[in-house]
């Protein structure tokens, strides 16, 4: 709109339209934020409720409707009975958390989550052993050693690596990593923990290196110069000054990478197999929590069966673990922030 009396137009626009517009924009943004919060909240409710259904006879919703139904049809006594049966114990929390046998579908049934937890921990520890050192070294190289042209090539490459669908990584593990392992250890099966740990390690390297590099690049040159001025070598500057000063960011990248490894699903499902197994031998097949959830998800267990309900219990454990990692990361960031001004 271009007419000659620009000043008048501006004034008019300045007087009424922005107020309404402001409000509308505000409302849109608020709604988006609200949707996010509500979705998160909803997921947590479903998860907790489902898990309740695993440990008790009824979910919270089932319990409430049972009580209500009892109350309407037969009065307080019937409601009480419904509540009692609904609250009846199906699986004890103790068995779930400390049991060492996981067989929720095939009889004799057993609901100890430890084997799945163990499988997940094998993947986490194995992949961390690979990704944390390599990712940190890559970050140091990019931030302290590489000249600008090299960095321009490597950084985007790492980001591409981070963008590859995880199912592709799983396929890569099956068709490339496992055959290599088998060449050295012929007894290795098609599914084995080592291939899963390696492939998840490769997967999370970009996360460690990229986030750590960001933190290291943010360390002010003043600090580097102070060390160089004292006759420090590049290596000493990196290890004595840059890494300690960027520690919060580096640790945060570790934590995020580890929580990614905890939650990683497709790659491990393809690579490590479906055999709950408490073992230290990385050449054996195992099963992670996520892989179990895939297994149940694609199987024909019926809704409401205990196999189905176990999904929620395992999912809740996963959720608690990643939530703990997130909280840890927040704590680390606050704890170690301002190593420099």
């Amino acid at each position: 709109m271009s007419d000659a009396s620009g000043a008048v137009d501006l004034t008019r626009a300045g007087s009424d339209i922005p107020a309404a517009k402001n409000l509308a924009v505000r409302a849109v943004f608020f709604t988006c934020a609200l949707i996010t919060v509500l979705t998160t909240f909803g997921i947590i409710v479903v998860l907790v409720d489902g898990a309740l259904g695993f440990f008790r006879e009824e979910t919270l919703l089932g319990l409430l409707s049972g009580i209500l139904g009892g109350l309407l049809s037969g009065g307080p006594a019937e409601a009480w009975a419904a509540a009692r049966s609904g609250l009846g114990v199906q699986v004890t929390v103790r068995e779930f958390l400390f049991g060492t046998d996981w067989s929720p579908i095939i009889r004799p049934r057993s609901y100890g989550v430890i084997p799945l937890l163990w499988g997940t921990m094998i993947i986490v520890v194995g992949s961390a052993l690979i990704a944390l050192p390599i990712g940190t070294a890559t970050a140091i190289y990019l931030s302290e050693y590489a000249d600008r042209r090299v960095r321009k090539v490597i950084k985007p490459t790492l980001e591409v690596l981070a963008g590859i669908p995880t199912i592709v990584y799983g396929f890569f593990a099956l068709s490339f990593i496992t055959p290599i392992i088998q060449r050295f250890f012929p007894e290795t099966g098609t599914f084995n923990a080592a291939a899963g740990a390696i492939v998840v390690g490769v997967m999370i390297i970009p996360m460690v290196s990229s986030l750590s590099e960001d933190a290291m690049s943010a360390v002010p040159d003043d600090l580097r110069n102070a060390a160089y001025g004292l006759g420090a070598t590049k290596f000493e500057v990196s290890t004595d000054v840059v890494v300690p000063a960027s520690l919060s960011g580096v640790l945060a990248s570790y934590i995020l990478a580890i929580s990614r490894a905890i939650g990683e699903t497709m790659a491990v499902t393809l690579a490590v197999g479906m055999q709950p197994n408490i073992t230290l031998n990385p050449l054996e097949p195992i099963q992670t929590m996520t892989a179990y959830m895939v297994q149940v998800g694609i199987s024909d267990v019926s809704v409401g069966s205990i196999g189905y309900q176990s999904l929620f219990a395992v999912g809740l454990v996963l959720f608690v673990m990643t939530l703990a990692m997130n909280l840890l990361s927040l704590w680390v960031k606050g704890r170690y922030r301002e190593a420099y001004r």
Partner: peptide, 30 residues
Amino acid sequence: ALRRRVGMVFQKPNPFPKSIYDNVAYGLKI
């Protein structure tokens, strides 16, 4: 080797985020 014989103090104070002791000891340590 040169910088070990020619020290430098910068415009903006730039102590390491370490203890006072470690700051002073750093040059000797390396």
